[in-house]
Simulated scan of single mutants.
Amino acid sequence: MDFGSLIGWIVLGVFVLLFLWVTVVYNKLVRLGVRAEEAWRGIDTLLRKRFDLIPNLVETVKGYATHEREVFERVTEARSASMKAQTPKEQAEADNVLAGTLKSLFAVAENYPELKANVNFTALQKSLEELEEEIARSRRYYNAVVRDLNTAIKVFPQNMIANLFRIKEREFYMLPSETMAEPPKVDFSR
């Protein structure tokens, strides 16, 4: 074997290794992107369940507190806005408003002991509480996946592959700053 063919084999080997490395990094970034999308769809599914539950809750309270129309309208408007949210930031802001209106709804319910004793109302409260816990777990999972994806996109030399294939960072699901100062408290135990 002469020196020229040895150099050719070395160059070919370097290109093969480079191609394999690019493939591995690209596939890793794609897998993380798919996991992030799956995590977001999981949150979306849970939010839809919550959206379906809220009208039942409102109707149950309405049966006992018909003169609280303004509260019912605010809950309905907040639910509608939350359903229209597209990005994690929009969803977090809409969820913040919805949580506030639901607190108002439960405050109204506190004034009606017969409502608090209603089996349907307590079942709806329990369902909402379980859904909120599941949504919180899903948000944490989503943010963990987004953290892994964004880190992989930013670190060298993977950032070159991400830029080459236009793989973008994802937005975290972060609560608005005013919510972080004092988290909403939902207490169904009373």
Rank of each mutant, 00 (worst) to 15 (best):
L47I: 05
L47M: 12
L47V: 04
L47G: 11
L47N: 11
R48M: 13
R48T: 15
R48Q: 15
R48S: 15
K49F: 00
K49N: 15
R50P: 06
R50K: 15
R50L: 11
R50E: 07
R50Q: 13
R50V: 08
F51C: 02
D52L: 05
L53Y: 12
I54K: 03
I54E: 00
I54R: 02
P55V: 02
N56K: 05
N56T: 01
N56E: 05
L57S: 05
L57P: 03
L57G: 06
V58P: 05
V58T: 10
E59W: 10
E59A: 11
E59T: 08
T60C: 14
T60L: 07
T60I: 09
K62H: 06
G63M: 10
G63K: 03
G63P: 10
Y64G: 04
Y64K: 03
Y64I: 11
Y64A: 13
A65W: 00
T66N: 14
T66M: 10
T66W: 00
H67G: 03
H67Q: 12
H67F: 10
E68M: 04
E68L: 01
E68F: 05
E68Y: 01
E68Q: 10
R69I: 00
E70P: 12
E70G: 11
E70L: 10
V71L: 02
V71T: 14
V71S: 07
V71F: 01
F72L: 03
F72Q: 03
E73W: 03
E73S: 10
R74P: 05
R74H: 13
R74N: 14
V75A: 08
V75R: 06
T76V: 11
E77N: 13
E77C: 00
A78Y: 02
A78P: 02
R79F: 07
R79C: 02
R79H: 06
S80N: 15
S80C: 04
A81T: 06
A81E: 13
S82N: 11
S82T: 10
S82Q: 02
M83F: 09
M83V: 11
K84Q: 15
K84N: 14
Q86T: 13
Q86E: 14
Q86C: 01
T87G: 07
P88N: 06
K89L: 13
K89F: 12
E90W: 06
E90M: 12
Q91C: 08
Q91E: 13
Q91T: 15
Q91G: 09
E93Q: 15
E93P: 08
E93G: 08
E93S: 14
D95L: 07
D95P: 00
D95T: 02
